[in-house]
């Protein structure tokens, strides 16, 4: 097992002559909370999809949890959790059934599913809702549930693609508590976000502009480097240099 959760060198995804992701290089340590920032259309989701084994890179090198993103996608998939921009639990299944399905496909036994499921439901305070269809839950609850389900098999890394989009500030705060708990238990968190207050919660952040990574450091160092009072200003300074139009 390598010390690094993610190693990425010159990773590139090209569609025709368009470089969605243009030679990005970075490492993420095990247990780190790594923020992945960028304007819409900067290439965050494409980069993340390559790391999750959902999309073949055009060139470059990368390994996730020690597995090669070109050849060992299925090994990667066993060792990561993923929560996409789109809500992706089954709305016509209950909370319990979703836990059972997703936990089960990662190989949890019935006994583990029961224990983990109880634990998760208690932690989220959803005892009353356990038998409700997921479709009838409010968005914030759905997102917290989706995150908890994504890490139910205790993966080495969890990828979160804008997990708190459209969620109220209180729930966002609770969501980040969950992220911290996960990081404390040793799970590496790779998260994209548009909320700069959330960026401050990360150990390190990278900012993508036009498919490149233009900045990568701790929030404090970045602010110093760009002589900015907040991450917001850092982000503006970088995003203004973009030549691509946002989607």
């Amino acid at each position: 097992m390598s010390e690094k959760a993610i190693v990425c060198k010159d990773l590139t995804k090209r569609f025709g002559d368009f470089f969605a992701v243009n030679h990005i290089s970075f490492d993420v340590d095990q247990g780190e909370i790594f923020g992945f920032l960028g304007a819409n259309g900067a290439g965050k989701t494409t980069a993340m999809r390559m790391l999750c084994g959902l999309s073949y890179p055009t060139s470059g090198e990368a390994s996730v949890a020690g597995y090669n993103v070109f050849k060992q996608q299925e090994d990667i998939k066993r060792n990561i959790g993923y929560m996409s921009q789109k809500f992706s639990l089954y709305e016509s299944l209950t909370v319990r059934e979703n836990i059972r399905f997703y936990g089960g496909v990662y190989g949890l036994s019935d006994k583990q599913l029961k224990e983990k499921g109880d634990e998760l439901i208690t932690k989220l305070g959803m005892e009353k809702e356990a038998k409700m269809m997921v479709g009838s839950l409010p968005l914030g609850w759905k997102q917290k549930l989706a995150f908890s389900v994504a890490i139910i098999h205790q993966p080495r890394i969890v990828f979160l693609d804008e997990p708190t989009g459209g969620v109220d500030p209180v729930t966002r705060r609770q969501f980040w508590d969950l992220i911290y708990d996960a990081a404390d238990s040793g799970i590496t968190v790779f998260v994209t976000t548009h909320y700069m207050d959330e960026a401050e919660y990360c150990n390190r952040i990278s900012v993508m502009v036009d498919g490149r990574i233009d900045a990568l450091d701790t929030p404090a160092n970045l602010k110093q480097q760009f002589e900015a009072a907040s991450m917001n200003e850092v982000f503006y300074a970088l995003a203004r240099t973009a030549k691509r139009s946002a989607d």
Binding site: G53, L54, I80, S84, K86, S88, L89, Y102, V105
Partner: peptide, 13 residues
């Protein structure tokens, strides 16, 4: 359409 296939694709199924 509803996006659940992506979640399936990222599992070891």
């Amino acid at each position: 359409e509803i996006g659940t296939i992506e979640q399936i694709n990222v599992t070891p199924i």
